[in-house]
């Protein structure tokens, strides 16, 4: 049996473009230095899997509005704090007196709301299928307890239509294992019929290298393929309990992806029965059209159409300490990862 490393090292076939669509994959690939051990024919592209990076500026504007104009306490994952909005980030709002609290779990935001009945608490619900169940559990819990001071500002997204939108951006996808842990593998298997190849990958060094080796081997025939390389966590059926919960609380909707525009039916929003927990309705927020720096090429970076280093803002106007585009904000953002880990030795 050849090891994954041997298969990768000895690869000398045609050019293979592999897109990872999970920010944690991006992060681990950089942290481990995996690009550095790949032969030149294998190119890894960082796709739109970082919920921070695909969150449009207008969403941050809404959160800032809730905090500064409506006096709500914003509970958020740490990732969103520095994402630039049209005028300011949440960190900027905080320095103007906004209450912004970092939480580990949406359920912690519910606890905070219960303990602070005099405050309106809004949880910023971003993230893909992995994170949606946690947000749904939070809404369910708040509803069961009748908490009138908890709501969510939704920007949840789902991957299936994004894969279709990205078809042709790469020869194979490294599917995001923790999304598949919830959704199962049927969607990705179904993509094979559309000519889209990919493997479900875990996140340890072993798992990422194994997934790449499997892509190399299965690519040889030229036929589209699918393989689950993360079976210790990902079951074909996913998590039926999570899927049932999500379906009970949320329904599909069109969603705007920063840099990619609106992808039909690629988002989730609360069902009408839970409208009382929708911050947009509760605070009657006006429609917000966010503005991004027109020179920012995050959208093309996310589609694999250009590299971070091709953007003229990269490393000059846009750095991790002063991000312009969302891809520079999160540690797992393609540009941030490129800036922090990529600029070394021979590039």
């Amino acid at each position: 049996m050849e090891s994954a490393k041997q298969i990768i090292d000895s690869y000398n076939g045609r050019k293979l473009r592999v897109m990872e669509v999970c920010g944690t994959h991006t992060h681990e690939i950089f942290r481990l230095g995996i690009r550095r051990i790949l032969p030149p024919q294998i190119e890894l592209i960082s796709g739109p899997g970082c919920p921070v990076c695909v969150t449009p500026a207008g969403y941050i504007d809404e959160a800032v509005m809730l905090a500064l104009e409506h006096g709500a306490v914003i509970c958020t994952f740490g990732d969103l704090i520095r994402v630039p909005g049209s005028e300011m980030s949440l960190a900027g709002a905080r320095s103007k007196g906004a209450a912004v609290k970092t939480v580990y779990s949406p359920l912690d935001a519910v606890d905070f709301a219960r303990e602070n009945p005099d405050k309106q608490v809004v949880f910023l619900a971003v993230g893909f299928e992995t994170t949606v169940p946690a947000a749904c559990l939070a809404v369910k819990k708040a509803a069961a307890e009748g908490l009138a001071n908890f709501s969510i500002l939704g920007a949840n997204k789902t991957m299936p239509n994004a894969y279709k939108a990205l078809k042709g951006s790469a020869d194979a996808f490294l599917y995001p294992g923790h999304v598949n842990a919830i959704t199962g593998t049927a969607v990705c298997e179904g993509l094979v019929k559309l000519g889209v190849s990919g493997v479900v990958a875990g996140f340890t060094a072993d798992e990422i290298l194994t997934a790449l080796a499997v892509i190399i081997r299965l690519s040889a025939s030229g036929e589209p393929f699918f393989r689950n390389c993360y079976p210790r966590v990902v079951r074909p059926e996913g998590s039926p309990a999570a899927l049932k919960l999500m379906d009970a609380i949320m329904e599909p909707c069109d969603a705007e992806w920063r840099g990619l525009g609106v992808i039909p039916m690629s988002g989730l929003k609360l069902r009408p029965a839970f409208a009382a927990y929708d911050a947009r309705l509760k605070f009657t927020l006006p429609p917000v059209a966010g503005r991004s720096n027109p020179a920012c090429r995050c959208g093309e970076v996310l589609q694999g159409k250009c590299k971070s280093t091709d953007c003229k803002l990269f490393g000059t106007a846009c750095t991790p300490l002063h991000p312009v585009g969302a891809c520079m904000v999160s540690n797992e953002g393609a540009c941030s990862a490129y800036y922090q880990y990529g600029d070394i030795l021979n590039g």
Partner: peptide, 29 residues
């Protein structure tokens, strides 16, 4: 590579230690 800190990682590859950033923010995503 003056000015840079390079790590040899668990797979034997070289990777840059990320530059010090601002506030330490726990990430979930």
């Amino acid at each position: 590579h003056p000015g840079k800190v390079v790590m040899t990682t668990e797979i034997g590859a070289q990777s840059l230690l990320p530059q010090p950033g601002g506030e330490l923010l726990p990430r979930i995503c």
